[in-house]
Design a protein around this nucleic acid. Structure first.
Length: 448
RNA sequence: UCCUGAGUAGCUCAAUGGCAGAGCAUUCGGCUGUUAACCGAAGGGUUGUAGGUUCGAGUCCUACCUCAGGAGCCA
């Protein structure tokens, strides 16, 4: 047996450009069907899958025997001629001429992930192998594009990326549970739960900035929408007020969805997402903008008509079922603005028309995926911010630097944060965020 | 933290309180167009753990463990 060294190396995704040519693929055995003297191995290489055809009479005995006895997920190089075939899902098949096994999966320890159904616990325990399956690979490709498109939107609109520290001396917002660790001799450090306060500083230095990195929440949330470690992209803009912030969020999401639709229709099909729902998001006309008061009125009507089970109490935050109902009324993300300040973060600017309201916005994804963006205009007045810190029983000393920003050339400014995993779950139509990140960290799982 | 549910073969799941089973996977055999291929055969079990009730417990009771998804909180 000899490998055909003269054949050019190709990827499965690029095979349409090699029709009629003999090429060498490098990858793994994804599946193998046999029919007597005819083998149908399916190869994958990370860019896609293709079925090979191996008639016993057409190849050397050793090639046939090697493939016939090969175990799934064994690594290999395979050489063959690319042939168009209407029976193939991708339109192409490979007439195998030669194969070289790089590492054969031992027969006594077969690849544990079957092509049939499996439970969540088992799959998460084998996440390092689960990522090889077509659906999971497709999700990770879409995730990569969402992250690229998100950064690209800011990079091409004059924003400077300024990443905040991950180790912080205190809570950014003073609310969430934080992961605590020793910081050398006496001090404690905490993993960041948001970079917002830091990029307010860089926004006043550079004008338009953003940060993009991991954040950590030690809250014991056990739902399909929560991870303890997740990625967040946050813009912060000097001289930007709430209306401008809504425009920014709208353009940002539109760009991301447009980019995904331009590059991942095949992946979305594998994942099972209805692309028409994404196409509806980017039709002209902008996203619906609903005030907290208007949203509350919607919920009152819905409850009176029996469309939601529990009434919404005015002055309280919306619950998960409330958000699901509101978002179900629109086929685009809905922007809910001007929540009561009482249950919102301490740094949010009061609405001059009604100081009990905050100039803030939550963007709810369609189809019940919940909040994907939270943002606000920030308090720029020194004395107001100081009194809010005191009202919230936050340690004034820790926020001295943050107050400095309101002492040295303060200006109105605004920003928001988008959780990447929730955006991926929505755009891909997944029922849990644990599939949106290569290795999810959740309340009960830190392996593998 | 609270509520609810689930733990049985490697995986997915069955089994009136009465002999612990099937499909898939694995191994062996058959098949020249299969699409999570199909057909035949074989191997594979301390029913999550510890107690209890009973002639008899996978099944009923108690405690615990693990996981799940919902609430709260959030992106």
């Amino acid at each position: 047996m000899s490998i055909t060294t003269s054949a050019p190396i190709a990827t499965i995704a690029s095979l349409s450009a090699h029709e009629g040519q003999t090429v060498t693929l490098r990858g793994w055995l994804y599946n193998l069907r046999a029919s007597g003297k005819l083998l149908f191995p399916i190869f994958r290489d990370g860019t896609g899958t293709i079925q090979g055809i191996v008639p016993k009479a057409a190849v050397p005995e050793a090639v046939f025997e090697t493939l016939k006895n090969l175990t799934l997920e064994s690594s290999l190089t395979v050489t063959g001629k690319v042939r168009a075939d209407s029976r193939a899902p991708s339109g192409f098949e490979l007439d195998v001429e030669d194969v070289q096994v790089i590492q054969k999966v031992p027969v006594e320890t077969p690849f544990p992930i079957q092509l049939k159904e499996a439970g969540v616990d088992f799959l998460m325990e084998h996440r390092h192998l689960w990522v090889r399956t077509p659906r999971q690979s497709a999700i990770l490709r879409v995730r990569a594009t969402i992250m690229r498109a998100a950064a690209e939107y800011f990079d091409t609109n004059g924003f400077i990326r300024t990443d905040p520290p991950i180790l912080t001396p205190n809570a950014c917002e003073g609310t969430s549970e934080l992961f605590e660790m020793d910081y050398f001799d006496d001090d404690k450090a905490y993993l960041t739960q948001s970079g917002q306060l830091y990029i307010e500083a860089t926004a006043l230095a550079l004008g338009k900035v953003y940060s993009f990195g991991p954040t950590f929440r030690a809250e014991k949330s056990k739902t399909r929408r929560h991870l303890t470690e997740f990625w967040m992209i946050e813009p912060e803009v000097a001289f930007l007020e709430l209306d401008g912030l809504l425009n920014l969020a709208e353009g940002f999401i539109t760009h991301i969805v447009t980019t995904v639709l331009a590059h991942h229709r095949a992946d979305l099909k594998v994942i099972g997402k209805d692309v028409e729902k994404l196409e509806a998001v980017i039709t002209p006309g902008g996203f619906p903008r609903v005030s907290y008061d208007e949203a509350h009125a919607m919920l009152e009507t819905a409850f009176a008509e029996g469309k939601i089970e529990a009434p919404h109490t005015y002055g309280h935050d919306f619950g998960s079922p409330d958000e699901t109902y509101i978002s179900s009324q629109f086929d685009k993300p809905v922007m809910i603005h001007r929540y009561p300040a009482a249950f919102k973060a301490f740094y949010m600017q009061p609405d001059p028309l009604d100081p009990t309201k905050a100039l803030c916005v939550d963007v709810l994804a369609p189809e019940g995926y919940g909040e994907i963006i939270g943002g606000s205009q920030r308090i720029h007045d020194y004395n107001l911010l100081k009194s809010r810190i005191e009202q919230h029983d936050l340690p004034l000393a820790a926020f001295q630097w943050y107050l400095d920003l309101r002492k040295y050339g303060s200006v109105p400014h605004s920003g928001f944060g988008m959780g990447i995993e929730r955006a991926v779950a929505w755009i891909c139509g997944l029922d849990h965020v644990r599939e949106t990140i290569p290795f999810a960290r959740t309340l009960n799982r830190i392996y593998p």
